[in-house]
C-alpha cells in the first residue's frame, strides 16, 4: 500500500488537490481509498464516495489533536484500504495545532498552502511545512505573479528542502507532478514511524486541570516573559 498524507490549514484546497489526483489515478486504473481526519465536522468522505465510488471513511478526532489521532488510526486505515483492494491510501488531515506534523517515513507528505494567505504564512505553520516532502501552493489564479514569487521565496526560506508545486486546484492544473511523486514511493513499511518529534505536551493542562496561570500547573510550564521551564518533581 502506498500512502499519501495531506495536511494544511482549513479551506486551503486539500480536498480539491486530492480530488484531482484521485480522478487521474482512477483513469489509470489505480484504486485509491480516502480517509479524512477532522476535529468535529467533515463531509468530504461522502462527496468523494459519491463522485468516484471509491472506499472512503472519516474519523473525528474530538478532543485529540487530529495529528495525534492520525498516529492512532493510520495502521487500521491501511488495513481497511487493503481489504478494499486499493493500491493507495490518501489521508486528509486538518493539521490544526501547528506543532505537530502527521507525516510518516516511507509515505508521501503533502502540505497544502494557499497563495492567498499572505506572504508570512509559510513562517507560521512550523513542522507541517518543514517536514513535508512537497508544499502544494493553491489558488495561484487569485494573485499576481509578483506575490506568487514572494510566497515561494518565503517557503524556501523556512523549508529549503521541501519541493514546491504551484497548482490551480479549482481546475486541476499542475497536478501531474504530484502523481509522479506519489507513484515513486514504495509501499509503506509495516512498522511506521512519525517523521518529526511530537511536541512537548507534558503539563497538568494536558491531563485536564483547568485553572489559568502557570503557578497552578506542573510539568513543562511557561510564563509570559520566560521560555519553557520545568516545575515540579
Amino acid at each position: 500500500m502506498k500512502l499519501a498524507i495531506c495536511a494544511g490549514p482549513a479551506t486551503t484546497g486539500k480536498t480539491s488537490v486530492l480530488r484531482h489526483m484521485i480522478k487521474k489515478l482512477l483513469k489509470e486504473n489505480i484504486m485509491v481509498a480516502y480517509l479524512k481526519i477532522d476535529v468535529q465536522y467533515a463531509e468530504e468522505d461522502i462527496l468523494l464516495q459519491k463522485e468516484f465510488g471509491i472506499p472512503t471513511k472519516k474519523i473525528y478526532s474530538g478532543e485529540l489533536c487530529p495529528d495525534h489521532c492520525n498516529v492512532m488510526v493510520l495502521g487500521d486505515g491501511l488495513k481497511w484500504a487493503k481489504k478494499n483492494n486499493c493500491e493507495m491510501l490518501f489521508v486528509e488531515t486538518a493539521g490544526l495545532c501547528l506543532r505537530c506534523s502527521p507525516y510518516v517515513d516511507g509515505g508521501l507528505g503533502l502540505v497544502v498552502l494557499e497563495a492567498t494567505s499572505g506572504m508570512n504564512l509559510p513562517l507560521k505553520v512550523g513542522p507541517m511545512l518543514s517536514l513535508a516532502d512537497t508544499a502544494v501552493v493553491t489558488k495561484i489564479d487569485r494573485i499576481s505573479q509578483a506575490e506568487r514569487e514572494v510566497f515561494r521565496a518565503r517557503i524556501q526560506e523556512v523549508a529549503p528542502n521541501v519541493k514546491i508545486r504551484e497548482v490551480n486546484a479549482l481546475h486541476g492544473i499542475g497536478i501531474d507532478p504530484l502523481l509522479t511523486q506519489v507513484k515513486q514511493f514504495m509501499d509503506v513499511p509495516t512498522n511506521m514511524f512519525l517523521r518529526g518529534n511530537p511536541p512537548v505536551g507534558t503539563c497538568t493542562i494536558c491531563v485536564g486541570k483547568k485553572e489559568v496561570g502557570w503557578q497552578s500547573h506542573f510539568g513543562v510550564v511557561r510564563a509570559l516573559d520566560n521560555q519553557n521551564f520545568y516545575r515540579g518533581e
Binding site: T116, G118, R142, I143, S144, Q145, A146, E147, R148, E149, R152, E166
Partner: peptide, 16 residues
C-alpha cells in the same frame, strides 16, 4: 514562477 515566461493580469488579479 521565476522561470515562467508568461505573466497573466486580469481584472481580478489583486495584491493581497
Amino acid at each position: 514562477p521565476a522561470f515562467n515566461p508568461i505573466a497573466l493580469i486580469t481584472q481580478h488579479t489583486t495584491f493581497l
